[in-house]
Design a protein around this nucleic acid. Structure first.
Length: 290
DNA sequence: TTAAATTCCTGTAAGC
DNA sequence: TGCTTACAGGAATTTA
């Protein structure tokens, strides 16, 4: 599933190809994949705009669009904070965002095709349709609750153990449930929540309010190293994740606990346990994680 | 406000 | 072989 490292890989790969391109056509095969605004308005907002930037926030891909459909050369002042016009893509579980030549055969479950001014196509494909497309200004999307308030970026150097501790203390939910809460920290999903808990040697079912400051600092560092290693390996392809070129990542072979229930713990060799937590399968070592 | 449960969605695999 | 069932899970929504 696409989590922070997978979305980061997509953004970095696509950025040099997309920045400067203009969206000239949009073929919405499954209009309900557009969650905001309505599909007609979405099309109106996106078609004719130039893509001026591509960034990631949490698990969201943010495409900055030119403020004017037919921008005068030279450009004006950059938009005020919150006024950036964005094309937003969230991949959900099985979403794929690919840049292809137009003659590339069409796969099943293709929901949107964006034609670019260089002839290539940006295709949104999503078997389970948990993903979504949105467009609007940053301010508008948040005000309309089309995008939730997101917690800090775990790889931001200003995100400290003390910061995470403040967000966890007083919460009685299991640690894992809070790591999955995008309002606590953005971009972490089931894979890297389990990996970070293992690295930090913390049981994922520990009540968050029982964690010491020291443990939470270890957890912050574990999140950082798990996510950075995954980015270095171009993400995990555990199910249907593919990069912008349709290729798989390399991190799935290096995961220490996710998907390895019953297999030996990489640290102590005892079989890894499987439990259900926050509605998610959760794998951890009963001996190494306390 | 918080926590837990429910819902959406379809391919895959297990069981009979 | 063919059918049924459980399972995978991000996050919005609902319930307590």
């Amino acid at each position: 599933m696409p989590e922070l490292p997978e979305v980061e890989t997509l953004a970095a790969d696509l950025r040099p190809h997309l920045v400067g391109r203009t969206v000239v056509t949009l073929d919405l095969r499954f209009p309900a994949i557009v969650r905001y605004p309505d599909p007609a308005l979405f099309t109106e907002l996106v078609v004719g705009r130039r893509i001026e930037g591509l960034t990631r926030r949490g698990k969201y891909l943010l495409h900055d669009l030119s403020p004017d459909p037919s921008p005068a050369s030279g450009g004006g002042e950059p938009p005020a904070q919150g006024e950036r016009l964005l094309l937003v893509v969230h991949l959900g579980m099985t979403g794929q965002w690919r840049l292809v030549e137009p003659e590339t055969p069409e796969p099943d479950h293709l929901h949107a095709v964006f034609g670019l001014d260089d002839g290539r196509q940006l295709r949104y494909r999503d078997v389970r349709r948990f993903g979504r497309l949105l467009a609007g200004t940053e301010r508008e999307l948040v005000a309309a609750r089309a995008i939730p308030r997101l917690g800090p970026e775990p790889l931001d150097p200003t995100f400290t153990g003390a910061d995470l501790y403040r967000r966890l203390h007083g919460r009685r939910a299991p640690l894992k449930a809070l790591l999955l809460d995008q309002g606590v920290v953005a971009g972490v999903g089931n894979i890297y929540a389990d990996e970070a808990c293992f690295r930090a040697r913390l049981r994922p079912d520990r009540r968050a309010n029982t964690l010491s400051r020291r443990s939470v600092t270890r957890l912050r560092d574990a999140l950082d190293s798990s996510l950075r290693q995954a980015i270095a390996n171009r993400g995990s392809s555990v199910a249907t994740y593919r990069d912008a070129w349709g290729e798989i990542g390399g991190e799935q072979e290096r995961l220490q606990v996710y998907g390895r229930a019953g297999l030996p713990c990489p640290r102590c060799g005892r079989p890894l346990s499987l439990v259900r937590l926050a509605g998610r399968s959760t794998v951890f070592c009963r001996r190494c994680q306390r």
